[in-house]
């Protein structure tokens, strides 16, 4: 198996534009929070950072920086009712099938099969583009997101970065 060296590739890409080396966040620990019930009883939410929005709302700014916008996505949204605007990755396949990056159809199937308990009342799209002001994520938009997940009694969040 050949691994794709994302960090190396991004360092090279942005360095070639004359940008200073990016100060990547390095998390020394990743606390494990065990479930208190089986997955088949859990409420599951999804988050994509791929510039995905419903067609009925304004598109994301594809060239955004420090965009903390976070859209609520109703879980029954048809999977062909999305648009993708993000100039930092190739979303050709996602424009054909949003499940490539935001697998809400697959999540529905797991709910029907009883492999998860329920789909959360709100799914999420946001934090797209390059966010350099990390303290705002840590101190403001991140905690606000956690509050929303807790309000929805979410047990598991599948975060799918792009």
């Amino acid at each position: 198996m050949i691994s794709i060296r994302y960090v190396d590739a991004l360092n090279k890409y942005y360095g070639a534009m004359g940008n200073p080396p990016y100060r990547w966040s390095i998390n020394e620990t990743a606390p494990l929070h065990r479930l208190t019930k089986p997955l088949r009883e859990c409420a599951v939410a999804l988050l994509t950072s791929g510039g995905v929005s419903q067609t009925v709302v304004p598109a994301f700014n594809p060239d955004a920086r420090n965009d903390h916008r976070l859209d609520e996505i109703p879980p029954d949204t048809p999977s062909n009712d999305f648009q993708v605007h993000d100039s930092y990755y190739d979303h050709t396949d996602a424009e054909t099938d949003i499940n490539c990056i935001f697998p809400l159809d697959r999540l529905r199937e797991l709910a029907i099969l009883g492999e998860i308990g329920t789909i959360a009342p709100r799914l999420w799209s946001g934090f797209m583009g390059r966010i350099y002001n990390r303290s705002k994520i840590r101190d403001e938009s991140g905690p606000a997101f956690v509050d929303a997940l807790e309000a929805d009694n979410v047990d598991v969040l599948v975060a799918a970065p792009t």
Binding site: G50, H91, T92, T96, D97, N99, C100, T162
Partner: peptide, 16 residues
């Protein structure tokens, strides 16, 4: 990036 869950319309891999 762009294919976190596989290719377009590849339901089996997306589900996996």
């Amino acid at each position: 990036m762009g294919n976190n869950f596989g290719q377009a319309n590849d339901k089996a891999v997306q589900l996996s």
